[in-house]
């Protein structure tokens, strides 16, 4: 699978001041988030999700269930989508982490963000950053020829990105508003665009 970190170049930001931990084992580490390096000193129990939200104040990544059961915390590590709740911050030193904030900004939307906006692919918006990061990661997986549970024959390559494929591949992101039909439309718009929707 190709290593690609989708996102736009952002100016370096000073590291946020972490909460001072006491008592429990802590560790100093540097996290590379959206091409900005942050120095942290965290309780080793801190999940990547809590490090992003509570220490770096990058709250675009959402906490929905904290157990890998909803997908709201989806971020891209070296271009791959994962649940930030089920991994420790200390395990990600040196990794290129991309969050929703690294994909685009209100005045400079990533194509996937623009498609979600255009298709009304969100309601309350809480699952939305995770959906978007997941969709961006998903299109990279499709381009790499990865099969899914919806693929009729896992031996075939490349995979045809049918609606059924998108639905299955996006099923790790729950949306309680059930914006799914519009999420599908948004992803389809991007996937049928240049470069199969993959970020440059």
């Amino acid at each position: 699978m190709p290593k690609s970190t989708p996102g736009v170049e952002r100016a370096a930001r000073p590291a946020a001041k972490p909460a001072a931990p006491t008592g429990a084992p802590t560790q100093k580490l540097e996290l590379e988030v959206n091409r900005t390096s942050y120095a942290l000193d965290v309780d080793v129990r801190t999940s990547l999700l809590d490090a992003l939200r509570e220490h770096l104040h990058l709250t675009g990544t959402k906490k929905g269930c904290d157990h890998g059961q909803c997908g709201a915390c989806t971020v891209l590590i070296e271009g791959r989508r994962i649940n930030a709740c089920l991994t420790l911050a200390v395990m990600h030193e040196g990794d290129q982490i991309t969050t929703i904030e690294g994909l685009g900004a209100p005045e400079a939307l990533h194509p996937m963000q623009a498609a979600f906006l255009a298709r009304d692919a969100l309601q309350c918006g809480y699952c939305t950053p995770g959906q978007i990061c997941s969709a961006v990661g998903m299109l990279v997986e499709v381009a790499a020829g990865w099969p899914s549970h919806a693929t009729p024959d896992v031996g075939t390559r490349p995979v045809e990105l049918t609606d059924g494929e998108i639905r299955e591949r996006m099923s790790g992101n729950l949306c309680r508003c059930c914006a799914y039909p519009n999420i599908l439309a948004a992803i389809r718009d991007v996937a049928s665009g240049p470069n199969g929707g993959r970020s440059p």
């Binding site: 997908g71 989508r81 997941s134 899914s148």
Partner: peptide
């Protein structure tokens, strides 16, 4: 990666299918 490995997909499609039936893409990536 295991589910997508061409050798797994052609020689052990059962394994590829089983992996892909489990969890979510995000969890399988981890």
């Amino acid at each position: 990666d295991t589910a997508a490995d061409p050798r797994v997909r052609t020689r052990y499609p059962l394994l590829s299918q089983a992996l892909l039936a489990g969890a979510s893409a995000q969890l399988r990536n981890k």
